[in-house]
Amino acid sequence: MAERATSLGWQVIRGYAVLVYIFMFLPVMVVVLLSFNASQFGSFPMTGFSFRWFIELWENEAILRAFRTSVILGLLTAAISTTLGVLASLALVRYRVPGANMISTILIAPILVPEVVLAVALLLFLNFLGVNKSFTLLLFGHVIFTLPFVILVVQARLISIRRDVEEAAMSLGASPVQTFFQITLPLMLPAVLAGALFAFTISFDDITGTLFWKPGGVETVPTQIFAMLRNSISPEINALGTVMIVMTVGLPLLGAAIARQISKKSGL
């Protein structure tokens, strides 16, 4: 940025970047603002500030049910994905598994495959097996495509934990299992938490796969919004959107803060 010419170039790029961000975030801001609008119609100008739509959300049985479904689904997905992800990472990083590279590629693949393709493929496969759509199937699908994120995060952390720290623990008399719980797990806890949060938010946020896999009558928050949008644009949707934004942005931020706190304490 020392020269005028490049400085001008940078100005243009910076301006462009700002425009892109505005384009991306303006609608989000509009939704959040309008969710506090007192008027019946979800549009500007705002006629007053109110929590009316949030209260209506709270009283809407269908939305509450969807919310509960989403939370349960997210928590189960996070628990299963994290457990599997930690085990898989341990196997891949710490033990010489034959074909480790291929297994790793297969486990990571769901990130690379477009979600629609994955969704259809899984559905067809299960149809072929004669399995009906069910909550379990939905959960299964969510686990499959949140697993890669957990594995990537946990693996990266595990690689940075020196093997000799574990060896030292064992030489002092801790069995491999005790070593895992005393040394390895605490050291990778930030990554495990991050992985769990990732899994929860991705699951909570997901619509494509969910639309394919959910059994009739079960709605998650995103599919509920989707369904409501088809009928009318109620200001309730803005309020619901705001809740979603708070959860999917706020949770990871909270998680990052906690993880940083843990790392700071353990001196890593």
Binding site: R162, D164, V165, E167, A168, A169, M170, S171, L172, G173, A174, S175, P176, T179, I183, P186, L187, K265, S266, G267, L268
Partner: peptide
Amino acid sequence: VPIHKRNLGIVFQNYALFPH
């Protein structure tokens, strides 16, 4: 006999202290 039952003291090049 696995390592954790051998009653050995090991000192590693990079100390290998438990950071947490």
